[in-house]
Design a protein around this nucleic acid. Structure first.
Lengths: 118, 118
DNA sequence: TTAAAATGATACGGGTCCGTAACGAACTGG
DNA sequence: CCAGTTCGTTACGGACCCGTATCATTTTAA
């Protein structure tokens, strides 16, 4: 596991990956949406609105709205917690998994090209 | 120069860096703004509105507005091209350089921690 | 000199997002 | 039971961004 980025490489990776995301036809996710999406897909459940808001350091309506829009894109799902029906559990979707997989591929490809393209 | 990210590492890097940017007090840049900013700071001048629009695959008003808001944040500057006064040249600022430097540090630190934190 | 082309900015109508405040629903403890 | 707490959501006014269409300015070329 060799992950050593110098300053120039880090910036180029950040730039190249963002450029590819912008050029894609898919609508860009905001930094907040990206963080929420990857939290849900990388960290073990359960994921609640309150928990996500605390983790990101934002208010709860921010999470609610992000879940609204990402739900419209079919990237995440909401379900009531049967144990405590006040809670909402954020769940993964098939489409969201594919989206995250494509994002990982993009980052990996751009990282690999750093070696040859600089 | 060893840059080898596997899928899990790429996603964790993307997540961790975005999380730190969201938690920062500074306002988040959109993907388009990030791409414009890093293009200006990584690639050799001159940078014009038309050129940036073509590179990103967006319309010119998108670039104009992004330059408006990033100019308000003192991240970039606009200047008329004396050679061809129709053109606007996008220029770097001291504050923008610091911002880009901090971004690079964040990405580098998060990349370095991938080794120990997984 | 003048019509055409090119550049960036602006107006417009519509959408999304922001934080604060208030709300209903669900749980908790006395 | 029932007041108090904890959830997530919604309402609101304001800010920003979107793409299309149009504009003024400048350059080019006939």
């Amino acid at each position: 596991m060799a992950v050593e980025l110098n300053t120039a490489e880090a910036l180029k990776l950040w730039h190249d990956t963002h450029l590819e995301l912008v050029r894609d036809t898919e609508p860009d996710l905001s930094a907040r949406q990206t963080t929420i999406l990857l939290t849900v897909y990388l960290e073990p459940p359960p994921h609640t609105v309150r928990g996500l808001a605390a983790k990101l350091g934002v208010t709860k309506p921010v999470i609610t709205r992000a879940l609204d829009s990402m739900g419209r894109m079919d990237l995440v799902n909401r379900r009531r917690d049967p144990q405590d029906r006040r809670n909402v559990l954020v769940q993964r979707t098939v489409n969201g998994s594919l989206f995250v997989e494509r994002l990982a591929d993009t980052v990996c490809q751009r990282a690999a090209r750093l070696r040859t393209m600089m």
